[in-house]
């Protein structure tokens, strides 16, 4: 008999701090169990740089620039199930605090007027740099999202429960203690 096909997972960090990815690694030794059940596509842990057709896509972070929009849409096209992991993906999180400020003004302060800068510095403007959006958006404003996993970050146990439910073909549920917002 053939071994059951492994679930293919891709992950990305958009405007996030990588804390959600770190919390995923906080499953500790269970990572070795997981490796037997899934295979990884594009993630910051592998050298696969674009997302291919996958069963599951996990997105950390909101959308803050043009490149984030592109990556997010590619994930949606390729992933059967797309999950917003953590406060930033779910509602913009802390980076969205810049939403009530003027982007130009922020950039000017940081790159031109702040103390401690060399003389005559300017806002970076090379075409290689993706254009920042005026606001940081939660990912559901741009694509359809199948599941939302709150927390900053969601705990390793919550991520583990969620993944093992999905792998076993159950609808993921987070019981008492796992569904948290801090």
């Amino acid at each position: 008999m053939n071994a059951p096909a492994k679930l293919r997972i891709a992950t990305a960090s958009l405007a996030g701090c990588f804390g959600c990815h770190m919390s995923f690694l906080d499953i500790d030794e269970r990572l070795l169990e997981l490796i037997d059940l899934v295979e990884f596509d594009r993630t910051p842990l592998t050298d696969i740089k674009t997302c291919h057709p996958c069963d599951l896509g996990l997105i950390e972070g909101g959308v803050c620039n043009a490149e984030n929009v592109h990556v997010l849409r590619t994930f949606r096209q390729n992933c059967k199930t797309l999950v917003a992991i953590g406060a930033c993906a779910v509602n913009g999180g802390l980076p969205a605090q810049r939403n009530h400020l003027d982007l130009r003004d922020i950039l000017e302060t940081i790159y031109e007027t702040e103390g401690g800068l060399a003389r005559g510095t300017h806002i970076p403007n090379d075409p290689e740099l993706p254009l920042p959006l005026n606001r940081v958006h939660p990912i559901h404003e741009i694509v359809k999202v199948d599941y939302f996993l709150p927390g900053c970050p969601p705990s390793a146990d919550a991520i583990w429960k969620f993944l093992t439910d999905l792998i076993a073909g159950r609808t993921p549920t987070l019981g008492h203690g796992l569904l948290r917002y801090d």
Binding site: V63, V69, I110, I123, P124, L129, P132, L133, E141, I142
Partner: peptide, 20 residues
């Protein structure tokens, strides 16, 4: 690079964002 930051180009460019 998570701790580090990003810029505005000189070329005219339009970015449009649509919802789901």
């Amino acid at each position: 690079l998570s701790c580090a930051t990003h810029a505005l180009g000189k070329m005219p460019l339009i970015v449009e964002l649509f919802d789901a």
